[in-house]
């Protein structure tokens, strides 16, 4: 399942042509860098010579990556070995002499990697989200997403926004995504949520069933988007989750609190999760997540539904 998925393993600004960058997709270490044409390349972060991490090596002027241990040098696109400097010979290496390549796709400020090197590129994404960040959280991917569904305040904060326990829609499937809407309040004096008749804002969460990549939209009560963000949680080694995000405030926010979102940092994804609070967090919205996920994924691998065919 994860073989076919595109994982947003880095933000564009994290990958340079100066130094290789290491990330994981689950237990699979990946090295990323930009070649001489600024194209992002991804190989298994393991030199097939003596298994050293390629991310400890360097990027040569021709855009190839050189292992830091004995200097074996690989082409980024194919993973093919192109040089062993100490051999001082121009002979070609047999095709098995290669590091495992992965497919890479970069747009909308994210670098996405698919473990299947031959995967077709994902649908283009032309969103421009200027704010961004990375948090590495000691909580596994599935539980991080469940916390996002059940109480977003454990994993992130939106400036001036208080998440209420009340949902406008429970988790359900919409166009292949897991979607829920949560009522929110401004963090200003007001009646407590249990006694509130109408909430001024709501948070819509739409999550990819496989990768957990999530679109967050904060809407006011006239259905105007105040803020949107893309969260990309990627499972890493030892049950850690790497969360990259990009976000943008909408122009023309009217409410005073909505205006104030533009001052300082409007959005944070936490590096730490409060274990005591998490342990007693009541599973609610997340309860149906795994069933929904399964039904979406099995249907996707089968023939398309009428709705999908129409889309």
């Amino acid at each position: 399942m994860t073989e076919a998925a595109w994982w947003a393993v880095a933000r564009s600004e994290e990958i340079s042509a100066d130094k290789p960058h290491n990330v994981d997709i689950g237990d699979q270490p990946v090295v990323l860098w930009r070649d001489d044409k600024k194209v992002v390349r991804a190989l298994e972060d393991r030199c097939p010579h003596r298994r050293a991490p390629l991310s400890l090596g360097c990027i040569l002027g021709n855009g190839a990556i050189q292992c830091g241990y004995h200097g074996w040098t690989y082409d980024g696109a194919s993973g093919q070995l192109i040089d062993i400097p100490n051999l001082k010979s121009d002979r070609k290496f047999p095709p098995v002499y290669k590091a495992r390549p992965f497919a890479v796709h970069e747009d909308a400020g994210f670098v996405r990697v698919c473990l299947d090197a031959k995967a077709a590129a994902p649908a283009p994404d032309d969103r421009v989200l200027p704010l961004s960040g990375t948090s590495i959280v000691a909580l596994d991917h599935e539980h991080w997403i469940a916390a996002l569904f059940d109480d977003p305040s454990l994993v992130l904060s939106i400036k001036g926004v208080r998440f209420s326990p009340y949902l406008l829609t429970e988790l359900s499937e919409q166009q292949g995504k897991l979607v829920l809407e949560r009522s929110c309040q401004w963090a200003s004096p007001h009646w407590p949520a249990p006694f509130t008749s109408d909430f001024p804002i709501s948070l819509r969460i739409a999550t990819d069933p496989v990768t957990g990549e999530t679109d967050l939209t904060l809407l006011d009560d006239e259905f105007r988007a105040l803020f949107r963000a893309v969260l990309a949680p990627v499972p890493a080694a030892r049950g850690v989750t790497q969360v990259r995000w990009r976000a943008a405030l909408s122009p023309g926010r009217h409410h005073l609190m909505a205006k104030a979102m533009g001052i300082g940092t409007p959005f944070r994804v936490f590096d730490h999760v409060d274990g005591a609070a998490l342990r007693v967090l009541k599973p609610s919205a997340s309860i149906h997540a795994s069933d929904l996920r399964e039904s979406i994924v099995t249907r996707k691998s089968g023939p398309p539904t009428a709705q999908e065919a129409a889309a």
């Binding site: 393991r46 097939p48 010579h49 003596r50 298994r51 050293a52 991490p53 400890l56 004995h70 074996w72 070995l81 062993i84 100490n86 051999l87 098995v96 002499y97």
Partner: peptide
């Protein structure tokens, strides 16, 4: 140090070698 855990368990893929 990073090599060591990668040699703890049998590995299907063979290391590649050069005349050196």
């Amino acid at each position: 140090s990073p090599q060591s855990p990668r040699y703890m368990r049998p590995e299907k893929r063979k290391d590649l070698h050069s005349p050196l």
